[in-house]
Design a protein around this nucleic acid. Structure first.
Lengths: 192, 192
DNA sequence: GTCTATATAAAGATAGAC
DNA sequence: GTCTATCTTTATATAGAC
């Protein structure tokens, strides 16, 4: 028998996606520990037991929910990389992916999330460091990433008063010189 | 009857202090949610029930444990403030207070901790902003604070590979120009 | 005053009815 | 295949023995 567009498999896939979407929202808002299967199921309008049936455990649900589709590599010329960093976390304010938020929200208290974030940031540090000609390239790259991390946390998660309702371009305009300063003197200028 | 140096009140005070110290350690390591009264009591070598007896609730224990004695105000000339910021979070790496760590560890998942951190950072932003002559003073101050927050989190809580075992003066030397860049052009240079 | 024992609550996980 | 009902665990909080 040919399967219709809304076959069992298709229906199941949609239900799973609805659960994953709800999970991202709840994990992003409350973090791993305070998020409950019940709350996620409620938001997805399914039975809590179904969530367990599909994903097996809360941890497994978290893993699948925060899995980010692609890991866009950081490469190119240094000044392009600075713009790319700004675009990712400052310009792109608003549509910051729920999955990233969920990961960040949980990273300080949930060991698995911490490990995931560290691995991803270490990777970005490596890519960025490769484009920095100054000495201490990796260290400089790590501090650039740390800066963007701090701005994102202060803005998106802590909601600092002074960062509320600030247009993206104003943020970018002020942060850019700081990032450039972190890249250090260019190779030609290094004569010490 | 005169009380000896180890009177009941004195013994109680010492026990309380031991519990608070253990609480700071456990809250700093695991965050509010994952920290348990049992673990804190065990570390302090007292009975779990005694902790409740003394502090009433886990939340109250947290409040008292993370209460930071003094709130040193940020004031002075701008270049001194930059040095003060560097001293507080970069140079002073190592003896960063357990209470601050506990607060930061919990700030993304525990609403009370988030509120406490936001209030404190907002306050620092105000003090720092008052010393910045450029336009967007508060915004610049907030971004400076965010930068230091990011470096602290990446270093102390996430343990980024590239930031491990880096001498404080090397960190400070690289971060300083970024902070200065965030302070913006001085008043004389602003002619637009 | 300190600790043993227990009450209470919440949430993850499972078994079985439909 | 989906959901009702329950089991089990864990941790906060309390009551009462010593």
């Amino acid at each position: 028998m040919e399967e219709t567009p809304t076959s069992r498999a298709e229906r199941r896939r949609r239900t799973e996606e609805r659960i994953l979407s709800a999970a991202r929202t709840v994990f992003a808002e409350r973090g791993f520990e305070r998020a409950t299967i019940r709350a996620i199921a409620s938001m997805a309008e399914v039975d809590p037991a179904l969530v367990m049936q599909y994903f097996g455990s809360k941890q497994e649900l978290f893993d699948q929910a925060v899995r980010i589709p692609a890991i866009p590599p950081l490469n190119g010329a240094l000044d392009e990389l600075v713009e790319e960093l700004l675009a990712r976390v400052v310009i792109k304010i608003g549509p910051i992916p729920q999955a990233s938020l969920a990961m960040m929200r949980s990273m300080l208290t949930h060991p698995e999330a911490a490990e995931g974030v560290r691995a991803r940031l270490d990777e970005q540090v490596g890519q960025l460091g490769a484009a920095i000609p100054a000495r201490d390239a990796e260290l400089r790259a790590a501090l650039m990433i740390s800066t963007m991390l701090g701005v994102t946390i202060a803005h998106q998660l802590l909601d600092l008063t002074a960062l509320r309702d600030v247009p993206a371009d104003r943020l970018a305009k002020i942060v850019r010189p700081a990032l450039v300063a972190l890249t250090g003197p260019d190779a030609a200028a290094e004569e010490s």
